[in-house]
Amino acid sequence: MALRGAVKNTFNVGFPRFFAGSISPLTEGLIPAVLESDEKEQQSSSLMVNAQKNLLESAAALGKVQLFNCNQRAFSTTSIASSLSPLRPSLKQTLLKRTTNQAIPLPYQIQRRQLNAWSPAQRYFVEGDHVINAEINRTFQFTGLDSGSFYPFVVYTVIATAIATVFMVLPWLVAPQRVDLDKSSAYECGFDAFGEARQTFSVSFYLVSIMYLLFDIEICYLFPYVMSHANPQMFWTMNLFLSLLVVGFIYEWGVGALEWRS
């Protein structure tokens, strides 16, 4: 029961109510039905859900759709208790789930996707089945750093602020400060900030800035990669991409393009 409490809590954290307005009435009705596995609560769920369930069951009877019982598979406490470790299902179980995953009917998939998004915008990032499975099978949410909760961002903000603060405060306290004219003047890319505009300067500035730009643009690829919860193929593709980048950088370095010639 404590476990189930945690599950409930999870979805309260992961799925804030103020976004509920943007979700279709169909899935809004479905949410309690997924969360609560008690029969009474299922009976008290809305008519629409029941109608949909009936429809799906009749379709399954006709053999058109293989019915996937979301409630039993994901949240039954008995199956969790019967497994050896409740937090991490055994390999056999995972394999079984993988084989069964392919038969999930579309309405359930959509519903699960919308469950997993903590904002309407993030719904577009949280799409892969592996993410949804992880989300549905999760037993203890709040330490989970993978997806669906706002928690990782809180951690990120705290750590980033802490590091920035340390780097700002520590030199101020520890380092000896000898201010001269050059140090206290405004810094502008190595140029004289208030000098003549039509000064000639080294082409190497361009080279360095192009290098900077290149590696800056790679971040554009890295951010969606991180946000979209990579599957193994994507992981290795990204590794390949990054290795190409690194090899290019090594070549540039080795050829001597980065050496400063004036």
Binding site: L244, V247, I250, Y251, G254
Partner: peptide, 8 residues
């Protein structure tokens, strides 16, 4: 990749 590194 190997060609680039070897050539370098």
């Amino acid at each position: 990749i190997m060609l680039i590194v070897y050539g370098l």
